[in-house]
Nucleic acid binder design. Sequence first.
DNA 1: TATGAATGAGCATTCATTCAT
DNA 2: CATGAATGAATGCTCATTCAT
Lengths: 191, 191, 191, 191
Amino acid sequence: MRLKDEQKIDLFFASTLTLVGQVGLVGLTMPLIAKQSGVAIGTLYIYFKNKDDLIHALYKEVKKRFGATIFIGFSPELPVEEGFRVIWENSLRYTVSNFPEQLFLQQFIASPYKREDQAMAVARPVMAPLAQLLERGQRQGLLKPDTECLIPSLLFGFVQQIAAHIHHTPARLTKTFMDTSFRFLWDAIRG
Amino acid sequence: MRLKDEQKIDLFFASTLTLVGQVGLVGLTMPLIAKQSGVAIGTLYIYFKNKDDLIHALYKEVKKRFGATIFIGFSPELPVEEGFRVIWENSLRYTVSNFPEQLFLQQFIASPYKREDQAMAVARPVMAPLAQLLERGQRQGLLKPDTECLIPSLLFGFVQQIAAHIHHTPARLTKTFMDTSFRFLWDAIRG
Amino acid sequence: MRLKDEQKIDLFFASTLTLVGQVGLVGLTMPLIAKQSGVAIGTLYIYFKNKDDLIHALYKEVKKRFGATIFIGFSPELPVEEGFRVIWENSLRYTVSNFPEQLFLQQFIASPYKREDQAMAVARPVMAPLAQLLERGQRQGLLKPDTECLIPSLLFGFVQQIAAHIHHTPARLTKTFMDTSFRFLWDAIRG
Amino acid sequence: MRLKDEQKIDLFFASTLTLVGQVGLVGLTMPLIAKQSGVAIGTLYIYFKNKDDLIHALYKEVKKRFGATIFIGFSPELPVEEGFRVIWENSLRYTVSNFPEQLFLQQFIASPYKREDQAMAVARPVMAPLAQLLERGQRQGLLKPDTECLIPSLLFGFVQQIAAHIHHTPARLTKTFMDTSFRFLWDAIRG
DNA sequence: TATGAATGAGCATTCATTCAT
DNA sequence: CATGAATGAATGCTCATTCAT
C-alpha cells in the first residue's frame, strides 16, 4: 500500500497557486489542478473532501505562511521604527515573490468560498505581534493615534499595490526600493 | 441605439455588480444576471455578444465611472495639497459606496477575462490629471520624488483597504475619518 | 421560443420505464434517459429539477395510472364478487401489459429514492374504492374477516407473481387464464 | 480455502444484505460493503473477482438458504395439506425475519446483474420438493389443477406481500397470523 | 493475506450559447 | 426585440478496480 504522502498536499497547494496566478479563482477547476499536479482527478479527493475543502485548506496555509514570514527577524525588543522596517521588508519581499498567494487571498475573500466562520479566525492571532508593536509605538508617542485600523490598511494596501506593480512591470525589488518605500510608510504613520 | 436600450445595459451592469458583491466573479453566471435583471437569458445576448463581452464592457464602464468621479471638483489650478485632498475624498467616497465595483475590478484583473490588450489601455488616459498633479507637485518640491509609481500605489492601495475595512465592520466614512486618513496620505508623500 | 412541451414529460416517463425494464433502477442513468428519449441531457433538467425529482414524479404518475385503471368498469353497486372480478381482471391486464411499471414500483420502494413522506401518501386515497368493497363484503358475510390486510396482500402479491411469470415465459393472458386465477382468488377470500 | 475465509465471506454477505436493506441495490457500493464489514476495499477483491461476482455469489447463497429453510420439517410422506402448512409457515417465518434477502432477490432479478444464464438455473432444483407436492396433491384431487404455475405464484406472491406489510407496520408474525393466512392459501388452492 | 492510495471512466448537474417562436 | 426551450461541453465528484507496500 502506498502511504498517504504529506508532500502531495504541498504539491496540490503549489499547483493551485500557480493556476490562480494564471487563470484566477474564476478559472480554477479540479481537472486543472490534477493535471498541473500530474495526478488523476480521483487522487485529489483522497486528500481533500471536495473543492471547497481544498480551497479552505489552502487559505489557512497561505495565511499561516504569510504570518510566519513577516515576523522573521522581528522582536518586541526592537525599536519601533526598526520593528516596522523589518516587517515592511519581510512583507514586501514575501508578497512580491509569492504574488499568486496574494491574488489567491484577494480572490478568496470576495468569493462564495469565503465562509464568515472559522476561516477568518486565522487572521487575528497571526497578526498579534504587529498589533502589539502598534500599541507600543502609540504609547511612546512615536506613531499617530489610530483607532480606525488605518496603519494596517496603509501597510497592507501599499504592499499589495507595490507587488502588483512589480509583477506587471519589469521593475525589481531592490534595496533602494525598499528604503524608499519604507520612507513613505514611516512618514505616513509616525507621530 | 435607443434610450430604452441604454437603460437596459445599465440595468445589466447594475445587476452584475450586485451579483459580484454577493457571489464574486466566481459565482457570476448568465442565468443569474438575467434573473437579477428580470429578463430572459436570450435578451442578454441581444445586448452582448457573449459573457466575455459583457464583462469587458462592464470593466470599461467601471473604469470610466471611477475616472469620472475622482476628479469631480478637481482643477489643475488647485494647490497641490488641495488637489490631492479632493482626489482622496472622491476616491474614498466612491470606493466605499461602490464596493462591488471595487471587487469587480480586483477580481477581473486576476481572471481569465483579462486580455492583455485593449482593456488595460483604458486606465492610462483616465488617470492623466493625477499624473499631471504628481508631476507638478514634484516640480514644486512639494512631493517626494517618485520614479516607481509609489504614490499611486499608496493612494489606491490605501483606499482599497479602507473601503474593505469599512465594508466589513460597522465603521462609517465620516469627515473626521477622511481628514485623518488624508493626513496619513499627505505625510507619506509630501517632500 | 419553443413552448415547453407537456408531451415531452410523457416521453421521458416512457423512456424511463423502458429502461427500468431493461436495466432496472440500478442501471438507470440520466444519459440513458436522454438518449432513449432522443434529447440532449440538458433538456431533462428543464423538465425535472434533478434525477430524484424525475423518479418521484414518475412514481406518482405510475401510482395514478394504476389507480385509474383498476377501477375501470367498477361501481360500488356491483355485487361483491362481480366487483372483485372487475378489479382482478383490470389489475391483471394492466400489470401484465405494463410490466416495467410494476418493476419500477417494486424497485422504487426498496431504494434510497423512497422518502417516507409525501410520496407514499399517494397510495391510500387511490385505493379507497377497494377498501370500501372489502368492508361491504365483510359486512355482508361474503368475505372472510381480515384485520391484517391479508386480502390486499394476496390480491397484489398474486397479480405481481403472475405478471412476472407471464413476462418470463411464452404464456399469454387469456380469458381462461383470468377466470382460473380469479377462482383461486375468490376461493381464498370468500367467507 | 480456510475456515477463516469462509467466515469472512459470510461477513461480506451479511454486510451486503444489511446495506441492501438500508439503501437498496441502487445504493450498494464496494466502499460501503468494505466499511460495513470493517475491512479495506482491497480485501473484498481477494474474495471476489469483482462486484458482479460478489452479487452473484450472494444470489446463489440466498437462493440456497431459502431453499434449505422452507423444507425444514417437511417430508414427502406428510399429508398434502400438512405439507403445505409446513412450507407456508417456514416461508413466512423466513421471509419475515430475513426481509433484506427478500429485497435483494427482487432487486437482483430486475437489475443489470441478472444474467439470463447460470444464475437462474439455481431456482429449479431447489424447489423440487414443492413441485412434487403439487403433483401429488393434484393426482389425489386435493388441489385444483394448475397448468400455469398459479399455485407457486400465489404462494410466493402472498408471502412477499405479507412480509413487506409486516416490515412496514408494527404487525408481528403470530401463530394466529400464520393460521389465518394459511386458511386463505389453502382455500385458494384446494380442489 | 491485507491494506488503502492511486487511477480514470462515468455520473449528475450546470451553464454559455443558439434559435424557433 | 424578447423569450426560454434546447443543446452539449465541461465541471465536481464517485466508485469499481488495481497494485505497491
